[in-house]
Amino acid sequence: MEFIDINSRNEGKERCTAQVQAVSAGAEHRWGFFLLPLALPVMLLVVWEVLSRKGFIRPTILPPPTDIWQVVVEMTVSGELLKHLLISLERVVKGFSVGAVLGLISGILIGLSPRIERAVALVTGLLRPIPIIAWVPVLILWMGIDEASKITVIAIGSFWPVLLNVIQGIRSTDRKYLEVATILEKSRWMLLTKVILPSALPSIFTGIRIGIGIAWMSVVGAELIAASSGVGYMIMYARELSQADVMLVGVFSIGITGLLIDYIIRTVESRLLKWNV
């Protein structure tokens, strides 16, 4: 029996060395790892630049990337770009927090109780298909043009994906683990915090990622319709002044910020879910 014990220890070591090898193999391919995703955007930028410079595209419609970069530098130096981005980001954080917390709580309740699900099924079924943009005029009427209406739009937008994924995560808890907890006479609270929620965590994270994506889209939508600050407002204002370059700076900064947010959430997720391999 000692013999097999030692073997199983060795097995652990082998696994470790295998991981180390995988990591070093990754280091060798690091250049390819970074170059591959960059190749397509660089190619597109070069084609775009060349077409603009040769006069195939009118700069008033689509300025060349170098001109846009010029505006980015100017707007960064003046602090205007960051100001609008931070205002939008603040709205996203506020609205998403409200929407996600509500989605999490309702999701847990609905996920745990088929009765509650039946009770709210018609209301959620009716409200869910409404596009967020449709709420904007309604909310402006109710809450005015200030922050409250925008934050509410974002909260509604991020509520649904969080809700649905939390329900899905809770429902997919493996019966086998529930049986173990039953045998060990665990309280309902222990069952929820030690078994059901951890097992739903991967799904909850999916909801959070989709939710924050929608929150970011919702804020721009709300700002396009009615605002005096934020990236959406910046784009609309630049359109009125026919500043195509400023508009595109706004549009692309939305994309880049979204990418960064997603990256941050993925990092947190992989830290928290290191057991989930």
């Binding site: 049986e179 039953t182 006479e185």
Partner: peptide
Amino acid sequence: PGVDRGMVFQEARLLPWL
């Protein structure tokens, strides 16, 4: 069920997150 009886299943059924 009660803690006066312990059970081991065919699958270890360890909670993967612990």
